[in-house]
Write a protein that binds this DNA or RNA. Structure first.
Lengths: 219, 219, 219, 219
DNA sequence: TATGAATGAGCATTCATTCAT
DNA sequence: CATGAATGAATGCTCATTCAT
């Protein structure tokens, strides 16, 4: 199960082993509670080698964040076919997302829990990736709205808020699916589609929910 | 700006000062990175006094979690009138929630980010509170479904998933509203209602979104 | 069993309560490990009062040593009748000694274990008392030697060494008797008399044990 | 006087240096009063290195106790020739004992004063060694009793008490010899043999000292 | 007489980080 | 390429001691 301990491996391989160990340790213990000793031991190398390759705890953590972020974005992207209608794209993206986070719980913990918890400069790293995903979702919602021939279009600001809500719900459900035995990636995706898409459709077709004070005039 | 440094205060007062400082420090730095020295200094007292009153870092953190959880639940409760229809109850609850988290960003950070990130025994404390809120939302969705004379009723399991998604989205939007200048509590609440309620209504009236493979037969 | 907690007691009484608590705590925990908090609590008073009456931990410990030393010497003295022959005086003294140490294990622990373990200035306090007892025993041995019409007399230096050995053996047996269930004061005293007196008699009558190198000429 | 401060020594050597420093510090100050800072400084290393090699203050103290106990037992053992008659074995053992304690006053203080004073788990460590020595002495007394064709034999319980007294006297004399200038190991051993052996011989030949109440019938 | 409130100083322990080989 | 040896700088926690009432 553990990596076979062998000497003289190429640098790239060793680096990946170290980062595997680091992601696991950071994901489970958190940034502060993870010790370089533990990471080095788990990676099967000496501590100075970790420093030789990755310079410092901070850089190591940053490298982990970047690697995991890249992997997550790649997974979502590779699940989506841009030709399909918006809801099927979203459905595919969510399934890829929940599948990836379920298969990489430590990586997901690093991105979602640890990186955002331990302040600058780590939070920024994740924000870049998150914004990329938010932009993708924003694009989908906009496209759907256009498909629905909605006129006037949903204000950009509203679209942004909805995308944030959707991505937030997805993040939260990912944690829930990982922590709740018996919840599959597909089920989590379906729950979210049910929760979100029908609501989005109503919006797109000009049937928003309105606060009570505005009920009189508009509903 | 800071409280006037005065000596010899009754224990109850000092304890609140210490916990204020602790919530702020824990919320911003995280459990591990926060030092008792910093907390004591921010509270304007010496470290031994913090230990005399609050015993240990762990107990102090737990006390913070409990105080903030109680305050949040109380805020949401006091915003809701149980006589109103389900959507207006939810609307009121969300406004109270976003208002409270906006006014207590550090308390919210302690509950949402730090407590859940730093493992047992802290996570459990928050779970109790969170489950209470999830149960409240679950009740609302169930009530709404009954009001809509839905038959057959939404399966319990689906309701649970939806409640999780809604609460998760709310938690995420709270962070977003806190971090994005110009987003008011009311706006966040409206975004979430729009996102969630219309979708819930579709579900309640038996119009779920269905994955592509089932489209042929069911839609 | 514990002291009844009542306010406004005369100083002398309070002081004794504090010293009782202190002797017990010092005896069981040791000088360093005993905390003023624990002593004050055990005495049923507040810490500042302990300081008001006894000034400092060091003075408190010294006071304990002196009180217990006085009590021990008084106990031994009161058990001895100076008219009796030397062996019966010693026998009476030893019984009184073992009886007292058995009834005051904490006091004895303070004197024998703690005071001598924690360096100056405490060791000196005990030495004064110990030397008094050694002098008493030295006197007895000398008297016995004269009774035996020993001529030439035992050299003073030998007598001193023997007294040291006897007192040391007594101290050690006191600990042994306290720690070994079922060993009475009388039994400990008898063991020591058997061990010591017969040997002393041989010496007094000019039949010393001699090291091997001197055997040829003297035995 | 002090060892030349040199860096980069093999672990085994450094460990001995640390334990030398620890024995000295613990012996003079006591377990609680000794600080790891002081030990590290005396050993000429930094504190983390002490922890790296010896894990904790408690383990360090235990390691000291075990090292010193082993050394003391080895010293006594190597001084004894099992072929000799009992009194000469005892004489040889005592000389070895007093010689060793005189050469290692701090080690002896650790074993005799500090370890037994500071409760579990340290006291147990010393007890093991002490019981070994008591057993050795018990064996000698028993052998001597048989050599003396004593019949009926001395009861086991009496032999045990005598061995305790002898070992206790030896321990006490070791402290006395260390603290009293001009008392050699040989002298201390001779004093104890004089004090003890002649008395033992009386016992072995059936001439015990009896308490006054029993004099009438038995002497 | 008696105490609740408060602290300066110290201690065991840990950790990220660097040399010398 | 790889590591055993080593440390400066915190950090959680405790304790003897004092002050204001």
């Amino acid at each position: 199960m553990g990596a076979v301990k062998s000497k003289r491996m190429p640098r790239a391989v060793r680096e990946q082993q170290m980062m595997d160990a680091a992601v696991r340790t950071f994901g489970q213990r958190g940034y502060r509670a993870a010790s370089m000793d533990e990471i080095a031991e788990l990676a099967g190398v000496s501590k100075p080698l970790v420093y030789l390759y990755l310079n410092s705890k901070e850089e190591l953590f940053t490298a982990c964040i970047q690697r995991e972020a890249k992997a997550l974005v790649a997974a979502v992207r590779s699940g989506v076919e841009p030709e399909l209608p918006a809801d099927r794209q979203l459905w595919a993206g969510l399934r890829a997302f929940f599948t990836h986070t379920a298969k990489n719980p430590d990586g997901w913990a690093v991105l979602h829990r640890q990186a955002r918890t331990h302040g600058e400069p780590f939070a920024t790293e994740v924000m870049v990736m998150r914004d990329e995903i938010v932009a993708f979702v924003t694009g989908l919602i906009g496209a759907a709205a256009r498909e629905a021939h909605r006129d006037p279009a949903l204000p950009d600001r509203d679209v942004a808020g909805l995308a944030q809500a959707l991505v937030g719900a997805a993040e939260s459900l990912a944690g829930w699916a990982n922590d709740t035995p018996g919840v599959s990636a597909k089920e989590a995706a379906a729950t979210l589609m049910n929760f979100a898409w029908a609501g989005l459709e109503n919006l797109m077709h000009g049937r928003p929910w309105l606060p009570p004070s505005q009920l009189a005039g508009q509903r």
